[in-house]
Design a protein around this nucleic acid. Structure first.
Length: 497
RNA sequence: GGUCGGAUGGCCGAGUGGCUAGGCACAGCUCUGCAAAAGCUGCUACAGCGGUUCGAAUCCGCUUUCGACCUCCA
């Protein structure tokens, strides 16, 4: 089997993955800012890195997956202006940061569960690590790469750039930055516009504030990730992930801060997922084209023709390589829904199939082909987590599976060994690694009993050639969202929408 | 304006030099009381123009066009 390779955004090439501590892998992913409800765009990184994390585990790594919650900083919430203008009114009418943070964190977790994203090992919050952040800022000041102005602390990017490759990750040149911004920036407290805040002095009306050596204030956006990732994963860790839009300034700043504070770069491999677009434009607040997760799942949005199941969204995302943009569209989502249904049905069939136990395949070519498709599951994942190709192979296997059930393919066409391999690996990849689930959740026993009764009545009617009655039962059940299928062997199966 | 990345059949999307994914949709056939499902078959595209090559969607150049980042952003 080949080794895991994936694209390192820092070096801009695919590299073989070698963890710092053999057998262990550290993964840090920038989590959400919980000042608003998560949207479809947020689903991409968390699903992408959930699969990364699952696959690393499959390869035998003991994974520590850390994903933060950004609950400190300069929050903007819908309606915040109105609330702030109320100013000195009753306490209950004021925005309580903890309340908002709690609400959106809960919603985020709910969304993650629906997407079947496994929980990170550690989910640190920025507000819970103020001490660590202050300490790191102090170190940077001591080393001479940060300065204080009016209670705020800024990182001296220009000085840093003299000794370190600032801009390498995001591919920008400091000189350009300085030139394009200099004239706009006469009155700022920063020495250069490119400098970024490590700590911000809080104006009196700012509600989130902590005591620091520089007065009351709150941490800058970038420092939290550096402080928390180094605390839980070490000063140098394996993989840092996040959306491409975070490369600059966020990730670039993280590198600079950590490099000064710890004396070496923080991350071995940088991974960035691409954006989800809608009508070709990135989904984001500034474009006013956001589809929130709750809207997506309920279909309650002008752009949406229907509601979409979380698993359809997960499948849709995994059908595309994580480094490509993914354009949202109703037709595409609907296609994914049908595709996932078909795939899952084949998987269900496979689980129930039995094998005659013959060790020699009756159809050597098919046996060889099936073995190859299965072997490729690993190869594709090892090549930059190509979930799209894994899924394509599953669709190659689906007709084989269905054919074995339908009789188009003979019972012992595959050897017992290949058949077993197929069963094991299909489960492994579709459930454990891609993390997919069936669309219709397990029906209750009672419902099962009721439908069985109806199926019996219908079978009686059919026996009497009373097709009017049998069709009526089937059609009415269909309207209720239950599809009956007359199987070739005379049995009847059903599925829920 | 600067930097970077795209442009693949009706739609979504893999794919980096020859073997030309996959899904959805569509059409025909088989099975079937009829359906549904399933199976089989068909649909062969790579923005345009040059160039390199025995051979290019894939490499190079130009053009057109879309987008991302440069400010909070997954």
């Amino acid at each position: 089997m080949s080794d895991l390779h994936f694209y390192n955004s820092y070096t801009r090439q695919k590299e073989k993955f070698e963890s710092i501590t053999p057998g262990y892998a550290g993964l840090y992913v920038c989590g959400p800012t919980v000042s608003g409800e998560s949207h479809l765009g947020h689903a991409r990184p968390y699903i992408t890195f959930d699969v990364v994390q699952r696959y690393l585990k499959h390869l035998g790594y003991k994974v520590r997956y850390v994903r933060n919650i950004t609950d400190a900083g300069h929050f903007e919430e819908e309606g915040r202006d109105a609330i702030d203008k109320v100013g000195e009114k009753a306490k209950l009418e004021k925005l309580e940061p903890m309340e908002m943070v709690h609400k959106y964190t809960s919603l985020f977790h709910h969304g993650m569960r629906l997407f079947n994203c496994e929980e990170p090992a550690i989910e640190p919050t920025a507000t819970g690590h103020i001490v660590e952040q202050i300490s790191m800022i102090q170190t940077i000041i001591e080393k001479g790469y940060a300065y204080e102005v009016n209670g705020s602390v800024y990182f001296d990017v220009k000085k840093y750039a003299q000794g370190y490759p600032y801009g390498k990750l995001s591919g920008r040149i400091l000189e350009d930055q300085l030139e394009t911004t200099r004239e706009l920036d006469g009155q700022d407290e920063k020495r250069n516009k490119v400098d970024f805040a490590l700590w911000k002095s809080a104006p009196p009306e700012h509600i989130q504030r902590w005591i620091s050596p520089w007065g009351e204030g709150f941490p800058g956006w970038h420092i939290e990730c550096s402080a928390m990732s180094s605390k839980y994963l070490g000063e140098t860790f394996d993989i840092h992930g996040g959306g491409m839009d975070l490369m600059f300034p966020h990730h670039e700043s993280e590198i600079a801060q950590s490099t000064i504070a710890h004396g070496h770069p923080p991350v071995r491999y940088w991974m960035h997922n691409n954006m989800i677009t809608i009508n070709g434009k990135k989904m984001g607040k500034s474009y006013n084209n956001v589809i929130k997760l709750s809207e997506l799942f309920s279909g309650n949005h002008p752009i949406l023709e229907q509601a979409y199941h979380p698993m359809v969204v997960r499948f849709y995302i995994l059908q595309t390589h994580y480094r490509s943009t993914l354009d949202f569209g109703n037709e595409a989502l609907q296609g994914s829904e049908r595709a996932l249904r078909r795939l899952w049905e084949a998987y269900d069939v496979l689980k129930k199939l039995s094998h005659p136990g013959t060790t020699e395949p009756k159809d050597e070519n098919l046996d060889r082909q099936v073995s190859a498709w299965i072997a490729e599951f690993n190869d594709f994942m090892n090549d930059d987590f190509n979930t799209a190709k894994v899924i394509a192979n599953m669709f190659e296997l689906a007709p084989v599976i269905n054919g074995m059930k339908g009789g188009q393919i003979a019972g012992g066409a595959l050897s017992l060994a290949t058949f077993t391999l197929l069963q094991e690996n299909f489960k492994l990849f579709i459930e454990d690694i891609l993390g997919l689930q069936p669309l219709a959740v397990a029906q209750s026993n009672k419902l099962d009993g009721i439908i069985s009764v109806l199926i019996e009545i219908r079978a009686d009617a059919k026996k009497r050639k009373d097709f009017a009655t049998s069709d009526e039962i089937r059609n009415k059940l269909l309207k209720a969202g239950i599809t009956l299928k007359d199987e070739k062997d005379g049995s009847v199966s059903y599925s829920l929408d």
